[in-house]
């Protein structure tokens, strides 16, 4: 069922031009001085980056929930985002952040390392429980190593640089970030969409899915590489942005026929919309310094998560 897709595409078509004009200083393309430079070099790449990252996180969240057959699953569970964050922190610690490419490359290497570790631990059997536990172990290991890296920072300035970067933001990002993240995210979304058949079959449980001809190993590989590309490249250019992968599939699911495969593309579009709007709000809100996108989304996400839990509790009674 593709009902939500046109709706979301139209919303994005409206939101992207609006987001170009929105900011602490609203832009009038005809009267603002240097409007073309501000639009072309600052706001357009930032908007495209928001769309890219949100799209990747939304698709990854939908695929993860389908794979784990759990509406509370989040892309962070595989340990790929923490792995990418660790890579980025290491590059900051080594003082490589000045280069436009090194930090994202370190982050991608961190994501790749987490993916490799996952594949090694989970083996070829493709069991989901073992896989999830391996992901949680990797996430906590990466988290601990990140804390260690922060504690090893040579001075207070370096510490604050790492901590601020970890909060996730799209401030001061440019075209190189778009060129890095967009192709990888798109490739990741394509892989996750290819996993759709297998995710649909998993609706009936692991044994039934295998009896329907689904290869657990192939499905797991598609998931790991798909989530790795989308989430890894997102963290590489914008830091850690939470809750999008958890929230978006929930918001979109009632608009679809609830098949996991039918949720991936609409979740990508809705994730893109959510991050774009949230980033605009960060720019518009009259605070002393710009609100970090990662913090803003967590502020929205935590109450949403609570709402979900309360709803589940009510249904369980």
């Amino acid at each position: 069922m593709t009902r939500p897709i046109p709706l979301l595409l139209i919303s994005l078509a409206v939101a992207i031009p609006l987001s170009l004009l929105a900011g602490r200083v609203w832009l009038d393309p005809w009267t603002t001085p240097n409007a073309a430079v501000i639009l072309g070099e600052l706001r357009l790449p930032r908007a495209l980056l928001a769309v890219t990252i949100g799209g990747g996180l939304g698709a990854a969240g939908a695929a993860m929930q389908g794979y784990l057959r759990n509406p509370l699953a989040d892309p962070g569970l595989f340990g790929i985002a923490p792995g990418a964050a660790l890579g980025a922190v290491v590059s900051l610690l080594l003082g490589y952040a000045a280069s436009a490419w090194l930090l994202p490359l370190f982050a991608l290497a961190g994501a790749g390392g987490a993916m490799l570790l996952l594949a090694l631990i989970a083996g070829r059997a493709g069991g989901i429980a073992l896989f999830t536990l391996a992901g949680m172990m990797i996430a906590s290991l990466a988290g601990a190593l990140t804390s260690l890296a922060i504690s090893l920072a040579p001075n207070a300035f370096a510490t604050s640089e790492i901590v601020v970067w970890l909060m996730g933001a799209l401030t001061d990002r440019g075209w190189p970030d778009v060129w890095l993240a967009a192709p990888l995210t798109l490739a990741g979304i394509v892989l996750l969409r290819l996993a759709g058949r297998g995710l649909d079959a998993l609706t009936l449980g692991e044994a039934a899915a295998r009896s329907l001809g689904i290869s657990p190993g192939r499905l797991q590989a598609l998931l790991v590489v798909g989530v790795g590309l989308t989430v890894g490249s997102g963290v590489a250019v914008a830091g850690v942005i939470g809750f999008v992968g958890l929230m978006v599939p929930h918001l979109v699911r009632p608009l679809t026929d609830r098949r996991p495969s039918a949720l991936i593309v609409p979740s990508a579009l809705a994730g893109a919309l959510l991050v774009l709007v949230a980033d605009c709000l960060c720019r518009i809100l009259p605070l002393v310094t710009e609100l970090r996108l990662g913090i803003a989304l967590s502020l929205i996400g935590a109450p949403f998560f609570l709402h979900l839990l309360l709803k589940m509790r009510r249904e369980a009674v």
């Binding site: 009936l204 039934a208 026929d257 609830r258 098949r259 996991p260």
Partner: peptide, 20 residues
């Protein structure tokens, strides 16, 4: 193969479930 568990993770319609 029809497993014993009868698990259905997502609330599909009858037709979509049969279509699997």
């Amino acid at each position: 193969y029809l497993p014993q568990s009868g698990e259905v993770a997502w609330d599909l319609s009858v037709r979509n479930l049969v279509a699997l």
